[in-house]
């Protein structure tokens, strides 16, 4: 019975526990050291470690297309700063901004962007790239909407009520665009949501929404960048790609330091200057051409859409 040995054994047991605990601590510090070493950033950074972290909330389409993956290290090297990139739908990105949890947002929802600035949260809206939305769907085109305008296509979807449509349903910029199109087609959005089982609200990012639409052989509205990035994994083709409604402009907004004193306005302005600089504009324009055979984003500066 251990009780009997209690007095003789207590000390070694405590010792052993101490050894165990220090063992765990050593293991953890080792891990910290190795994870620090194996980080690609640690190797590439200059002798002076970057002190500043700049937080960016970006719309999922800019993140999922992989563009930020290239821009991030370029910017970090140039300004010796750590970019922390959070991907979120435009609605959530703006909410991060309103709460002061980020320093700059890069999104695509003009109406809410202007509201954000009017409410005093943002300094100014700086567009840096654009492309067009697409309605994609199964190649058999069950609703027969191929080649229509986006408004007419949505109208037909609503009237037939058979072919499924997957909506982002996450208050993102793409979702806002979808609501605009429903409004142009003459429908109240609440009525659309309750129109039947064919209208599916995914509540997720652009990539997962495309995957879901492909699985369900449904239509969906997508930005062209994400569609091209995911194309290889999808059984979906573009069915509607014409119409002024489909314009998609990406903008950067730095947080207003008057409202958010902790916002790093100088570095945020550096990022904006970086995005609209001729070399990065050219980089954005060329991004993905080699891989997808077509332009994902059109640089905004110098070739503004009409």
């Amino acid at each position: 019975m251990s009780v009997v040995f209690f007095l003789t054994e207590e000390v070694p047991v405590l010792k052993k526990t101490a050894v165990c605990l220090s063992g765990i601590f050593i293991l953890m510090s080792l891990l910290l050291a190795t994870s620090g070493c194996s980080s690609p950033r640690a190797e590439s950074s200059s002798p002076l470690p970057p002190q500043l972290r700049l937080r960016v909330a970006t719309t999922t389409s800019l993140y999922d297309s992989g563009l930020w993956g290239y821009l991030e290290p370029m910017f970090e090297r140039k300004y010796n700063v750590e970019l922390d990139i959070m991907y979120a739908g435009s609605g959530k990105a703006l909410e991060y901004g309103r709460r002061g949890d980020v320093d700059i947002v890069t999104i695509h929802d003009q109406i809410r962007e202007e509201q954000f600035i009017a409410d005093g949260y943002g300094v100014r809206r700086v567009p840096f790239a654009y492309n067009y939305f697409l309605i994609v769907g199964p190649s058999v085109d069950p609703a027969g909407i191929k080649g229509l305008t986006p408004e007419a296509a949505f109208k037909k979807l609503m009237e037939t009520g058979k072919a499924s449509f997957v909506s982002r349903g996450d208050d993102s910029g793409t979702h806002a665009k979808e609501k605009d199109i429903w409004a142009e087609a003459g429908y109240d959005y609440e009525a659309v949501r309750n129109a039947g089982r064919w209208y599916i609200e995914a509540g997720t990012g652009m990539g997962p929404t495309l995957m879901m639409a492909s699985e369900k052989q449904a239509y969906t509205l997508t930005d062209i960048g994400t569609y091209l990035t995911y194309k290889g994994k999808l059984a979906l083709v573009p069915v509607v790609d014409k119409g002024s409604l489909l314009l998609n402009v990406y903008s950067a907004i730095a947080l207003n330091p008057e409202k958010m004193p902790q916002a790093k306005i100088d570095m945020a302005n550096n990022l904006i200057e970086f995005l609209i600089s001729p070399e990065i504009q050219e980089f954005i324009g060329n991004y993905g051409i080699e891989e997808y055979g077509t332009q994902l984003f059109t640089p905004y500066v110098g070739s503004e859409p009409e």
Binding site: T34, S35, S38
Partner: peptide, 12 residues
Amino acid sequence: PEVTEIAGRSLM
């Protein structure tokens, strides 16, 4: 390197 880093961070 990326996987080691992520796994190390999870563990830490």
